[in-house]
Design a protein around this nucleic acid. Structure first.
Lengths: 248, 248
DNA sequence: TTTGAAAGTGTAATAATGACACTCAGATAA
DNA sequence: TTATCTGAGTGTCATTATTACACTTTCAAA
């Protein structure tokens, strides 16, 4: 008894996305508040995700979820891995929520987790722009999430750390124009440790992916900083040869 | 209409394993020959894998497949990621094979791929020990595999390369007693490039995970090599601090 | 006893890393 | 107008890591 396949949700396979954003101070992730009340509770927060359709591939499914959520396209997206403990729905509130949104809430689900990097400026959170409320929460403040989403977040953080050490993906989190201090703080946030200012600057200058704009910050109560942008051409050039030199 | 969950195969989720072995000369992987004939054809080779049961987690499923195949337990196993293009069953021979072994051969399947490292000496291939014939094939000779398994193999090779650069997992592929030249050749096979002999030796000596046995090779037609074994205790010690120093 | 084949060994030049402290430029407030 | 505050920006030196490179040794087999 083969089922019709196309345009059907697959009850057993979902994607979940860890969307990182950087507010120039700290790392945040985008979470869905499932709660009824207007107050955010740790218990009601979940990663954005959805069951996949049988006719879309996994990346497409993740893109779809992100686009529905943020309206953004061409987002940096990378698979973290598959999570699918049979007992991942162990909390009562998770069970109830699933019953409210799924046809087959009891089904065994394996979820494919992705992480994604967005420029927070491109995604200003509009008040009630979605039925499901999406909110930015600082990564450091998250202690608990729905299902196995906390575990997925830990894996996402590790993956991001590993990746940023060998590949200059940090620019996806910064505005077009940024200062070296902002880049510095970004790396410190992701790697979760202090980096010496001068050594950091030497290193990023050497990797040769920055284009100095000869513009300065304005209206800051201190010496204004030079602005830079990411040099896309140099990136493409280096990309072929594998970026050997990013050991932070 | 919730289905009974326990002890049922899930028609939508499978695991596939890339089992690496090292014959002291080159890297091999363990493949299943689906062909009827006694001659191995590239077309008939597939990664070992199976649908998962709804009551087992993904790691358990991979272990189960490996144990059924090799009889080995406590195998090094690591997830590569999820693969699930809706068109992964594009070849006619794959479709036919699925029809012969699956209840629901049309189902959309997402597979979770694992790679695994075994000591080939622990797994001497017995003639016809399995209905499905399992055979070792040198990685370099593989040009084509069933479904999307060739793509999975590429991902496995990349993952293994990345991992071995930062973590001393190579020992899982070597016999208890081994020579530095064998270790050297192993790293060259995995990284697919030549490594300077003296620099390599300096580096592995510095990482301090080798225990010299003060035994020598015998009956080799050249100067016999010192034998070493892997120092498990030192490994445990270093494991906590994160192995910073393996940049090959 | 000679030969073949891989084992084993050290050094020097260059590059990368880590530690460290002061001056500069602009905004704001007195 | 001057003083103060804040973060921007900069260089050097010691240590460590990396790369490149060639000859001698030991055993087995002929």
């Amino acid at each position: 008894m083969p089922k019709k396949k196309v345009f059907e949700l697959n009850p057993n396979i979902s994607v979940d996305c860890v969307v990182f954003g950087f507010d120039l101070e700290k790392l945040n992730i985008l979470l869905i508040d499932r709660g009824e009340s207007q107050f955010v509770s740790n218990n009601s927060l979940a990663l954005p995700g959805d069951l996949i359709y049988n006719n879309e591939n996994l990346h497409q499914a993740a893109y779809r979820v992100l686009e529905e959520l943020t309206g953004l396209k061409n987002i940096y997206l990378e698979q973290i891995g598959a999570f699918g403990d049979p007992n991942r729905i162990s909390k009562e509130e998770d069970r109830l929520w699933l019953e409210s949104i799924r046809d087959n809430p009891e089904a065994r689900v394996v979820t494919i987790a992705y992480f994604s990097l967005v420029k927070m400026e491109d995604y200003p959170l509009k008040a009630s722009s979605f039925a499901k409320k999406a909110i930015w929460i600082p990564v450091k403040e998250i202690e608990k999430l729905a299902f196995d989403h906390f575990e997925i977040l830990q894996a996402a953080k590790i993956k991001l750390k590993e990746k940023i050490k060998i590949h200059p993906i940090g620019f996806n989190l910064l505005p077009e124009k940024f200062t070296l201090s902002q880049l510095h703080k970004l790396y410190e946030s992701i790697l979760d440790k202090e980096l010496d200012k001068r050594n950091f600057r030497r290193k990023v200058q050497k990797m040769n992916l920055l284009k100095r704009l000869f513009e300065k910050q304005e209206y800051v109560p201190h010496k204004p900083s030079e602005l830079y942008k990411f040099n896309e051409e140099k990136y493409q050039e280096l990309a072929k040869n594998g970026f050997n030199n990013f050991g932070f």
